[in-house]
């Protein structure tokens, strides 16, 4: 019995470690997609956020500030995406692809330039990382310690889901952003500034993705490496589709995918199932969901289409 509880604690802990980066990015993706801008640059935005977070933590020693800066770095690329897609009406997938070249390229480029031509940053010491909740209250290795005492932003992201849900469904801005993603022409005739709302949403998506990336380097592991993100941005996008483009749905999907990662960590110690096969689960699940449940018509109607005012 005790071992089961302990294992359960470890699994919850592993899930709590793996979920937040996905969830931050997925909430970002929600904003962008619901406002009608496809953002596949999330992956790149997470990578630049991961690097910026690590670099700022190394120079300032302030984890929270570094976390915020990671978000800003992501937001910068969100701005680039917004300029290309909203103002210039570029193909959103192509612009996102460009960002997936630019942002990770820039991250490793700057890393080499700043840290002695190395693709990895030096390790960040624990004091400069993000703080843990209730640190040292519970005995190390206990169930309570595993569940209630991980990094603070891991709990914050669930609060953020509530906030985003509130913004989406209970505020004027949320109503507008959802409307802009469905029928921008109609919104424009009602005097809503389509461009401004999309700008805000795409920049927010970059900011939240940046936070997700920074969480990886400031909590999960303690340095930046070019492979820290690999695919998490795309899993976040998958989670949003799986969650039918709602923040609460995305949260459930992220938890499920986080659990997959948790299982991968647990399975890593045995040798029963290949971790590579477990890694496929989020993608396979998403495809199956798309085939079985989502199908036509669930995607915001104006998604992927540049809005041309004079049309």
């Amino acid at each position: 019995m005790n071992t089961i509880i302990k294992d359960l604690g470890l699994l919850i802990n592993a899930t709590l470690v793996a979920t937040p980066p996905l969830l931050y990015a997925a909430l970002g993706s929600c904003f962008s997609e619901r406002s009608g801008v496809v953002n596949i640059g999330i992956e790149g935005m997470m990578t630049i956020g991961a690097f910026t977070g690590a670099a700022v933590a190394l120079f300032t020693g302030n984890g929270w500030f570094a976390f915020f800066c990671g978000g800003l770095a992501g937001a910068l690329f969100g701005l680039i995406h917004a300029i290309a897609c909203v103002t210039f009406g570029a193909d959103q997938t192509i612009s996102g692809t460009a960002i997936n070249f630019l942002a990770p390229g820039l991250a490793v480029f700057l890393c080499k330039a700043m840290f002695d031509n190395s693709t990895d940053t030096p390790p960040i010491d624990t004091a400069s990382k993000l703080p843990k909740l209730l640190d040292g209250v519970f005995p190390v290795g206990s169930f309570a310690n595993n569940v209630f005492s991980t990094y603070v932003p891991a709990y914050l992201c669930f609060v953020l889901v509530l906030v985003v849900w509130f913004v989406f469904y209970k505020t004027r801005f949320g109503l507008r952003l959802r409307a802009v993603g469905e029928h921008p022409q109609a919104c424009d005739t009602l005097g809503i500034n389509v461009f401004r709302i999309r700008y805000i949403c795409v920049i927010l998506s970059g900011f939240l993705s940046g936070l997700g990336g920074a969480y990886v380097t400031l909590a999960t592991i303690n340095q930046f490496r070019p492979i820290v993100i690999v695919g998490q941005g795309f899993i976040a996008i998958a989670a949003v589709i799986f969650g039918k483009f709602t923040p609460q749905g995305a949260m459930k999907a992220c938890l499920l995918f986080g659990l997959c990662s948790g299982l991968k960590v647990m399975a890593g110690s045995g040798n029963t199932i290949s971790p590579n096969l477990i890694s496929m689960i989020p993608y396979v699940v998403t495809i199956i969901t798309l085939v079985l449940f989502v199908g036509r018509g669930r995607v915001p109607a104006a998604n992927g289409k540049p809005y041309v005012k004079s049309k």
Binding site: G89, D91, I94, I99, F101, L102, P104, G105, V108, N117
Partner: peptide, 26 residues
């Protein structure tokens, strides 16, 4: 890397090229 310049500059150049081709129609 022979002159200690990050080879990732190629990614930056290529990413920029894609971005500008994507908006060039305007």
């Amino acid at each position: 890397s022979l002159i200690n310049a990050p080879s990732e500059v190629v990614d930056i150049i290529m990413g920029t090229i894609i971005l500008f081709i994507a908006v060039s129609h305007v």
